[in-house]
């Protein structure tokens, strides 16, 4: 064991030279993750002229907040409405999804429950076989009549067997068994045990799965693409996706781009910096939230990985 600038290396730690190399590698990898995201923020504050002349750049010649003012001038109503939809969807979906899944998981975690095995398989089978996109689409549209409604964005992604199995594993950890026994002796019913004992001690699991669910809802655009025609039901991510798609349509069809309709579309499309501004407002909330939850979901993920 040698001394290096007052740092005493443990017997299991790597040598100083390796440590330097490893840190350099990790700095590069971290920058590779950070810089593309930073690029979005920087270009959203870049003057449109700079983008046209020099392209997207991390070091723009001229800064500007015009992208945000133009974007809000052009489509404030649509943005606000889409954001409102996204938020309602995220909050309602996360809450209802957690409620359904935790209740189900609690029941199948209880050893005394007669239908435990059957209902575990009932959930588990949905992981093995799925009807697929087309059958789901037709059932949702033709049988339930959910096309072009808010419900089709909310319901289908609400609960998943995988998350239920993870929650069940969490709930049936050694400690809970004796807690439940004690509560039963005190005369507590199942609902009370679930709400007042199990949920409070399962915060890491709830935070993990709640975060997954809310991110899934917050980023949802595919269901809007698939089911929704009504502008009032757009989500913020779909708004962004649509913009990207229209740009590609124009690139793909030069003839269309030159036509009157194409010119009109081109005129209505946000310019490059405005597009970046829209991107910024669609991703910032998640980027602000996840570091706070990091501690929880690292714990949650590691526990969930233990065989269920």
């Amino acid at each position: 064991m040698k001394l290096f600038k007052g740092y005493k290396r443990g017997p299991l730690e790597i040598s100083d030279a390796s440590s330097v190399v490893l840190n350099i590698i990790f700095v590069i990898l971290s920058l590779a993750c950070l810089l593309p995201v930073l690029l979005v923020y920087i270009t959203s504050f870049t003057a449109e002229r700079s983008i046209i002349e020099n392209g997207f750049s991390l070091f723009p010649e001229q800064w500007s907040i015009k992208a945000y003012t133009t974007m809000f001038d052009q489509s404030l109503d649509t943005i606000l409405n889409s954001y409102k939809n996204t938020l309602i969807l995220t909050v309602a979906g996360t809450f209802l999804g957690l409620l359904i899944m935790t209740m189900y998981a609690y029941a199948i975690a209880r050893k005394e429950f007669t239908f435990r095995k059957g209902l575990t398989f009932y959930a588990y089978f949905t992981m093995l076989f799925s009807g697929g996109l087309v059958a789901s689409y037709i059932v949702n549209c033709n049988v339930y009549g959910l096309r072009d409604t808010f419900w089709v964005l909310l319901f289908p992604g609400m609960a998943g067997a995988y998350n239920i199995i993870v929650l069940r594993t969490f709930f049936s950890n050694a400690g809970t068994e004796s807690l439940i026994e004690a509560a039963k002796i005190d005369g507590a019913g199942e609902f009370r045990i679930y709400a007042q004992i199990i949920l409070p001690i399962s915060k890491p699991a709830l935070a993990t799965i709640g975060l997954f669910l809310s991110i899934a809802y917050f980023s949802s655009w595919f269901n809007v693409l698939l089911y929704i025609d009504d502008r009032n039901l757009w989500t913020i991510q779909y708004m962004l996706q649509r913009t990207m798609r229209e740009i590609q349509t124009l690139v793909d069809n030069p003839d269309f781009a030159a036509s009157e309709e194409g010119m009109l579309l081109l005129y209505e499309l946000p310019n490059e910096s405005a597009k970046m501004a829209l991107t910024v407002i669609s991703m910032t909330p998640v980027l602000l939230f996840y570091p706070y939850f990091q501690k929880y979901f690292i714990k949650g993920l590691t526990l969930g990985a233990v065989k269920g």
Binding site: L99, Y104, A135, F155, F191
Partner: peptide, 19 residues
């Protein structure tokens, strides 16, 4: 407690399977 989940899986997983 499992009822909402049972209904959910039936409507959005098992029905599409039949579909």
């Amino acid at each position: 407690m499992t009822l909402p989940g049972i209904v959910f899986f039936f409507l959005f997983n098992y029905m599409p399977m039949a579909g």
